[in-house]
Write a protein that binds this DNA or RNA. Sequence first.
RNA 1: GCCGCAUUCGUCUAGAGGCCUAGGACAUCAGGUUUUCAUCCUGAAGAUCAGGGGUUCGAAUCCCCUAUGCGGUACCA
Length: 501
Amino acid sequence: MVRVRFAPSPTGPLHIGGVRTCLYNYLFAKKQNGKLLLRIEDTDQTRFVPGAEEYIIEAFDWLGIQFDEGVHVGGPHAPYKQSERMELYREFADLLIRRGWAYYAFDTPQELEQRRKEAEAQKSTFQYDTQTRGSLCNSLTLSPEEVEERLKGDYVIRFKHPENQDITVNDLIRGEVVINTRILDDKVLFKSDGLPTYHLANIVDDHLMEITHVIRGEEWLPSAPLHVMLYRAFEWEAPQFAHLPLLLKPDGNGKLSKRDGDRLGFPVFPLEWKDPVTQEISSGYRESGYLPEAVINMLALLGWNPGNDQEVMSMEELIEQFSLDKVSKSGAKFDLDKARWFNHHYIQLCEEEQLASPLFLILKEKEIEASEEQVLKVISLVKERVYFMTEWWEQVHYFFVAPTEYNPDVIKKRWKENTAEHLQAIRQLLLTATSSEKEHLHTLVTQYIQDQQLNMGQIMNCLRLALVGDTKGVDLFEIVEFIGVEETVRRIEKAILEIAK
RNA sequence: GCCGCAUUCGUCUAGAGGCCUAGGACAUCAGGUUUUCAUCCUGAAGAUCAGGGGUUCGAAUCCCCUAUGCGGUACCA
């Protein structure tokens, strides 16, 4: 049985790269009929941010990624939050000490910092490792009595790498990665504050929770050898590893960061986030008008493809097609245009009813009365020109309110001496209309244009300017039919008056 | 600095030694549809496969070197 996990730290809003990592875990699990768990890794109390955990849960809920076990849904391996599992980790650290795979270290952070500075001054680097630990202050160099005494104060527990040993990490995406223990440092497993570090807690929990595949970001690849050693030290079977390529910023290289989003005008987070300390707001995909299906599809294809030309895929299709060996090895630049295209595409796939609620909300806000039938009609008319769910009002406003200003460029270009005269005539003509059907009205107006031997575009554009305020929008007679002859006449009168000024 | 990973059109990518005069999508440009703006349709342009050496009858695909980019190098995750 495949069991995978997504294990974020609640240090702020979930980055879109993290969302993709979780998506791949989800697709992999579903494809294999396995389970996906959500575990919160909050072993660093100094970085805890209130609301972050709730944010993560809400984000995946919006995106349609369900967990089989986790902080919010429970499960046989509860608790799923590391801060609630604290007493557990100490015994595993002790086990490693007993087995000679770890040792106590008493060097203070200041002392270590000093060593680093000295090394830097000599253009070299300091690392707590197989070569230096013999000259440092730890249970390997101190007498048992001294160790006993020092254990009463602050200390950490460090992993004891074997000397000069090649460690092979078998990565499902990258193949074999070999690293020698000589260049690895003796990582702290247990901090002086009595809490485990990521490395210890992560391995212990993955084992206890019976994780079979660890699918995580590439930034973890350098510490994968340590994790492999940890499994060996515990004499546990290690899970399979797969390190995903990074999500890069659209311009230049480098990891996509929050700043890039702000700078280039696209969200880096699934949901809007307000920093509890600075009150600073970061935009989210949901609030920016993206459909969750579009975000999922776009994200899935950033670093993975089904091996054919298919690009539009539902969650079900993604699950069906997903496999880790189709994941690419190099980082993918985020492409705003492609994201926009996906969103437009998914909006077209929606029924009018599914798109209506944001428009209802806006109309209510503006205190405009409109029936459901009217709203659905308008949506069906403008749908194909909408790219984001935030654009409804700018696409439909002229169905509900008369223009208050008229595009000066259009006036300059189209509004001639006799335009007012002709519009007056058309106004009169419309008043004689026997039906408010668009075909009938259309015939009336085109008939007039022909009779007067006028230029079609000339009159139509001015009429549009009067009704919409610009040369934009759907079929003119759809608009006339919707707002009615009475309102059309009113807008013509208003336009003639205003533009004459 | 050291260690690791990567490198095919502007971008995401297809490609598993001959199917590659390198395919698709987004973006771009040009036409078409339309009373406007969009949508939509058609087409074009766009990559000497980072560079250099090998291996081979044959290499984008295998090996080596170099360059560049990225990641890591915390009592963060």
